[in-house]
Simulated scan of single mutants.
Amino acid sequence: MEAGRRQFIAGLLASGLVPKPTWADAGSPSFLSAAALPDGAYVLCGIDADLNITFQLPLPARGHAAAAHPLKPEAVAFARRPGTFAVVIDCATGVQKAVLTALAGRHFYGHGAFSGDGSLLFTTENDYEAGRGRIGVWDVASGYTRIDEWDSGGIGPHDIKRLPNSDVLVVANGGIDTHPDTGRTKLNIATMQPNLSYIQNGTVIDTVELPPEMHKNSIRHLAVSNEGQVAFGMQWQGDGVPISLVGHHSIGREVVLMRASPDRIRDMQGYVGSIAYAFDGTTIVVTSPRGNSVQHYDAASAQIVAADSVSDVCGVATTVDGFMLTAGTGELAFSTWTCKVVSKFEAVQWDNHLISI
C-alpha cells in the first residue's frame, strides 16, 4: 500500500499535475532516524509525534545521522563515521536521488546541515593527510554537486548546525585526529584541542576552546535553541571523571559548563551520545548509550535537575512539551520535563541520532 502511494505521487509529480510535495506527502513525520532491521538490513525511518513509524526506506549500509531538507520531503542519510558516502532520499516516493561520495583523502563524520533556503548542504569531513577538518559545500539544485569547501576551524569536525534565522554554521571540532590506515584509532590524545567554530560564508567568525584541563574532552554533538544558543555534549578521552560533559555557549561569550555530582557524571561513562534543547530553551537534555542514562540540565543555573535510566539510549530530539528518545533496544520513548518516560518498542535497532524535521 505504502509503495503504491509513493509510486502514484511520483507519477503525478512527473506529469506536473500536483503542487510540489511537502513532508505531509511522506506521512508528516516529526523526526528521522537510521535503524537496523532484524534481518541485518539498514533503513532510514520517519517517526511521527505519536511514536509511529511513517516510512522505512532502505540504506546501503549502517547510518549515523541525517539532514532533513527545510522545504521538501528530502533527507540526506550519512554513513556511520568514518564513512565515505551519503544518500539523498526522496522520502515521499522512496526514490534515491543522489549519492554523495567523499573526495579522495577524505571521509565524512556522519553529520550535515542545510542552508536556510535549502539550496546548499554542508558536510563535516576529515582531510586525513593534512590532519585538518573541512566543510564540504554541495549545490542541491544541480543534484548535490560539490561546489566548494571550507576550513572547519579545527581538527575532527563532527556535528554541524545552522543558527536560526541566519546561515551562520556552528561546528563541533572534536579535536581528535584519525587516519583510515589505523581505523578509528585516535592519534593525538595528548595534544588534542577541541573547539566550537562559527562559520559564515566560509570564514570562521568566532572560535572558543575549553579550559586547558578539559582539552581531552572531545566536543562532539550540538543542539541549538530558538534564540541561537549552542549546547554541546562531550566525550572524555582522559583518565578519571571529567569536570563536566555538557556545556553551552553564545557567540562572543565564554563557555558555560554544566555542573553535576561526580556520581552523576560517572553515570554517563564519559560519553554523551546526543543532546537537545527544550522547546523554550530552558532545559538541556543529554543521553549516554554507554551509561544507559538520560540527564536534564537547567540552562540558566547550569546544574543537573533530573536523571533517568533507559537501556542503550542515544537519540534525543525536542517536542513542544518534552523530548523524544530512541534506543538500540528498539525503544521509542517520550520524556517529560521531569524525566518520566512513556515508551513503546519496535522491531528495529535505532542508530545514534534522532533528527527533528
Rank of each mutant, 00 (worst) to 15 (best):
K344M: 11
A3W: 15
V256Q: 12
A36Y: 07
Y271P: 05
G94L: 07
S33L: 01
H179V: 13
G281R: 10
A14W: 15
V76F: 00
T283Q: 10
F122I: 07
R266I: 01
V224N: 00
A79N: 06
V171Y: 05
V88G: 02
M214D: 07
Q200Y: 13
Y109G: 08
P164C: 11
T84W: 09
E209A: 13
D25F: 06
N52A: 07
D167T: 12
T319L: 08
A141H: 06
I89G: 03
A223R: 13
P19M: 03
Y128L: 02
H221P: 05
S311K: 14
R259F: 04
W150E: 01
A68E: 00
S293R: 15
G63E: 11
A34D: 07
T101S: 15
S119D: 10
A302W: 07
R259E: 15
G11N: 15
I357N: 10
G174T: 01
L210R: 10
A61L: 10
L100K: 01
S119Y: 08
L196E: 00
T287F: 00
A307I: 13
P73F: 00
G118T: 01
A276V: 11
M324K: 02
S309F: 12
Y42K: 04
I243V: 14
D167S: 10
I147G: 03
A302G: 03
F85W: 12
T319V: 06
V305R: 13
Q56S: 11
S356Y: 01
S218M: 11
A172N: 02
G228E: 04
T93F: 12
T207L: 06
A77M: 07
S335W: 06
E74L: 14
G273N: 08
R264H: 14
Q303D: 06
S15I: 14
V285L: 10
T207N: 00
T185S: 12
T207M: 09
V256P: 00
A67N: 13
F232P: 05
N226T: 04
G291S: 09
V18C: 02
G136W: 05
A102K: 02
G281I: 09
G143A: 03
G105C: 12
V341Y: 09
S197P: 02
G94I: 12
A68K: 01
F279C: 02
G116Q: 14
G322V: 03
T93A: 04
W23L: 02
H64I: 08
P164S: 04
S261Q: 07
S28E: 03
N201M: 08
V88D: 07
T283K: 06
G143C: 04
G156K: 11
G228V: 03
I199C: 09
L12K: 15
L354Y: 05
T54M: 03
G247M: 12
S197H: 01
G238C: 12
S197I: 08
R184Y: 00
S119A: 12
D25R: 09
G112Q: 02
N226F: 05
I275R: 08
I199T: 09
Q295F: 04
A34N: 15
T84S: 05
E149Q: 06
E149F: 10
S311M: 15
F108L: 11
G202Y: 06
V272G: 06
F108S: 00
D159V: 13
E227V: 07
R259H: 14
V224G: 00
N226A: 14
V88N: 05
W150D: 04
G40N: 04
Q303I: 14
A102W: 09
V140R: 15
